[in-house]
Design a protein around this nucleic acid. Structure first.
Lengths: 182, 182
DNA sequence: TGGGGCATGTAAGTAGTTACATGATTGT
DNA sequence: ACAATCATGTAACTACTTACATGCCCCA
């Protein structure tokens, strides 16, 4: 995936129908951002680039005195999207501060380690809530619902994992304090 | 978390004992990279910055004619690490091309959607294999083992999710083709 | 009449990757 | 003699975020 990847977010968003940059950003912010974020600083310049390359067309459609540029996918753009969808690749990258902390938590007392786990749990629980709100809002349709299901399920699993670990850590502390083992 | 975050990877790595930049990179590549990657282009300049700031000290310890700079955590550096570990924050960022494809897969026939799911599965299965290799190698100790357990469990869950979805999608296709429902 | 949302855009800065340059040592 | 690994470093580039600038529309 050369060129960053915003390209496909935009092509994908426009495959659902013509949209303005602002509307694409809205779509990103309440769906793809959970697995692929994008800022205005990426979206607007990329829309211009895609227009130059003939993958989208731009039409000025002001709403009242408010300017508005509606972008539409061209056939070339649709072909590009389909080609990408059919490519076998599909890597992922994660940057998780909570896990990084947990990884280096040896320097802490076990009560403090539990604190980190609780923070991770709270964080994921909050995301889970957001995902469930998306679910209720019914924004996700068709295949989009699959990804949502993955997100909800995965976060539920993570929250349960945190609960298990917390119990395990506090149990260890108990037996250690009581001196029953180790 | 200002300043990018490599800072804490390095501080954390050095909390396990003095190390060279090269050795830190090795540690990153076979453990933290799964949730926090770092390149030489980040590590070496950051080590110099941390030295200037008094969080680490550098000592030239050549191995034969081969140069080698061994960095050691100072008390200030250890304090910095502990302060960060105790901060409540702990966000995460994900960039997953497979999920992005799945999200926009409406443009594809259902056999091709299955193909995407299979690709995601293969990708995760490969990571799972790597994690299990780390597990067998016994590199992870103490709290590091917790994160490894999370990684293994999470990837197992994902692989199972892919299997469920694949079955579901092929079943739908069957009934659709047979005309039994919808 | 003021705040929030709609709407577009960019400049400046930060972060990160990649590729290259250099060279010694160890094991086969 | 050759490859792999140890070891340090940087220049150039790409990517991304943040903050700002601008201004209209709608509703309370």
């Amino acid at each position: 995936m050369q060129g960053g990847g915003v390209e496909y977010v935009i092509l994908g968003a426009l495959s659902l129908g013509p949209r303005s940059g602002y509307e694409i950003k809205r779509l990103v912010d309440n769906s793809t951002r959970f697995f692929w974020a994008a800022s205005y600083g990426q979206i607007y310049p990329e829309l211009k680039r895609l227009e130059r390359e003939g993958h989208v067309t731009a039409a000025s459609e002001p709403r009242g005195g408010r300017p508005r540029i509606r972008y539409t996918l061209t056939q070339a753009g649709r072909d590009r999207l389909l080609a990408w969808l059919r490519e076998p690749g599909g890597g992922y990258e994660l940057r998780d501060e909570g896990l990084l902390k947990l990884f280096f938590a040896r320097a802490l007392a076990s009560e403090e380690v539990v604190e980190i786990v609780r923070n991770i749990r709270a964080e994921r629980q909050a995301v889970l809530e957001q995902l469930r709100a998306v679910e209720r809002s019914g924004v996700a349709r068709e295949t989009g619902a699959l990804v949502l299901d993955y997100g909800v399920g995965g976060h539920e699993w993570t929250v349960e994992w945190c609960d298990r670990v917390e119990k395990q850590l506090t149990a260890n502390r108990q037996t250690a304090t009581t001196g029953r083992r180790r």
